[in-house]
Design a binder for these strands. Sequence first.
DNA 1: TGTAATTCCTATTAAATCGATAGGATTAAT
DNA 2: ATTAATCCTATCGATTTAATAGGAATTACA
Lengths: 140, 140
Amino acid sequence: MLSKKTKYGLKALTYIARHKGDTPVQVGEIAKSEQIPQKFLESILLTLRKAGILGSKKGKHGGYYLRKTPSDIKMTEVMRVLEGPIAMVPCVSLNFYEKCDDCPDENLCSVHRLMVQVRDNTLYVLRSTTLEDLSGKKYV
Amino acid sequence: MLSKKTKYGLKALTYIARHKGDTPVQVGEIAKSEQIPQKFLESILLTLRKAGILGSKKGKHGGYYLRKTPSDIKMTEVMRVLEGPIAMVPCVSLNFYEKCDDCPDENLCSVHRLMVQVRDNTLYVLRSTTLEDLSGKKYV
DNA sequence: TGTAATTCCTATTAAATCGATAGGATTAAT
DNA sequence: ATTAATCCTATCGATTTAATAGGAATTACA
């Protein structure tokens, strides 16, 4: 299940990507427009900034902006920052690998092999989708 | 993240599918072999039985057996019973659909559209994989 | 220079979920 | 009867999630 954190984060990124002009976008504006609790959104954007996806300007007339052009922001990156591992089990995770306590041999584990398939298919989608795709009106 | 419930359930189903002979398989045997807490596994197999995937025989020499041949047990079915919706958000779920409170129009929601893609790819894998695939030695 | 507006940071909380355990009721074979 | 198994309900502790609270730091601008 996708966490609200990730959902809100994706919506906020989309909002910022659609924003015209070179002024940063304020949390309050996004929160209001997307119906997201402002304080919660603050912490999410902070996470995205620390991950290098967003930049920020403090003080009056401050706000957030993208550090890269939307077509360079892949969904794999965003999902890993907000949601964590893309794999459904740590033992098939590329970026957050962990061995299972139980499984003596991963290659013989039926669950492992199934989850590799799921991971590969999910990765394909997330790698080939960028923020530009999300923020466009059309979506193929 | 895949719950332990689902992971244990898949391992147990695989174990039962590999079992030779027409005697039912006992919880204790599976628990021991797969390193699963027995009481926890009991409740999982009960769930699978109520969902019609497993049958059971009570009393001495009792146990669990498959209600269908392994090649007829799709991963979509098992996952929905144990893990719940396959979709990452309720608003793109085929079997557990729920409208989002926020989103006024799903077709305009960037998250919705991304999650449809993820769902379709995951569904493809889970639909085309059966318990027979899991329990076979080889896996393509 | 002061005030308002904004991001930044840490801590806390309420609720939900997860993983597991407990204890016995029921059923069937011998 | 006795034994061995599934069946059922309830509970518990730990973790995670979603959100809130309160204020510190920074900046624009009158």
